[in-house]
Design a protein around this nucleic acid. Structure first.
Lengths: 107, 107
DNA sequence: GTAATATGCAACTAAATGGTTGCCTGTCAA
DNA sequence: TTGACAGGCAACCATTTAGTTGCATATTAC
């Protein structure tokens, strides 16, 4: 069950913040991801390793730097499954409406 | 941040299984929810308390029994926020298509 | 009333988790 | 080539977490 890794990875606020940071700007280095965070580089490294193990982040080494990229697929898969599971009929329509409105909003 | 409680609650496989069980049949008693589970009643009680604190489950006492009901709203809200955040453009259309197909399937 | 059933509460334990410090390696620039 | 910069590895620590056992309470059935 690889779901478990994703759920556990998302359970920590620091890790969700790291995903947020990558969402704002993808491909950041470790040092960049450390900036403004109230913990050591090693702690951030560990969080990123957990995100990577859950397939939520992938990395690419470039010289002495390590770039981090977000992978939205697992989040989406889980969301799909859980929305679908627990409230398919009532919320699906609402959801569709919302995204539709949001998309118009961004055009 | 009440998000945190939901994420943390969903991080545990046993708790997700309890939600599954309630999804299969809502309004189960504590004893019913214990059946087939490889842990003591007290452990299940604790898990249910965490789910309740995260507003994922609500309870209603009836005589000496305690009935448990699933609340899908927080799951949906989080899913909304995270899908939207990380992959709004690419996956939204796919998602809408899927739910649309599924709904037809269930009619 | 008494026994069985359904749940609650509290103390305790083992393991996982989030974090630290210290040191080592590899790469780039002057 | 020598220092500074980016990152890796490992040991250690404190807290949280998931689970247990033991006992108490409340409701129902006989």
């Amino acid at each position: 069950m690889t779901d478990d890794a994703v759920f556990r990875a998302l359970a920590d606020a620091s890790r969700r913040q790291l995903l947020d940071a990558l969402h704002v700007r993808n491909g950041q280095t470790l040092s960049e991801l450390c900036q403004g965070r109230d913990m050591t580089r090693q702690a951030v490294t560990k969080h990123l390793a957990i995100l990577e193990a859950a397939n939520l982040v992938s990395t690419h080494k470039l010289g002495r730097e390590k770039l981090h990229f977000i992978n939205p697929v697992p989040i989406n898969e889980i969301a799909e499954r859980w929305i679908g599971k627990f409230e398919r009929p009532r919320l699906a329509a609402l959801s569709a409406l919302k995204t539709s409105l949001e998309r118009k909003d961004h055009e």
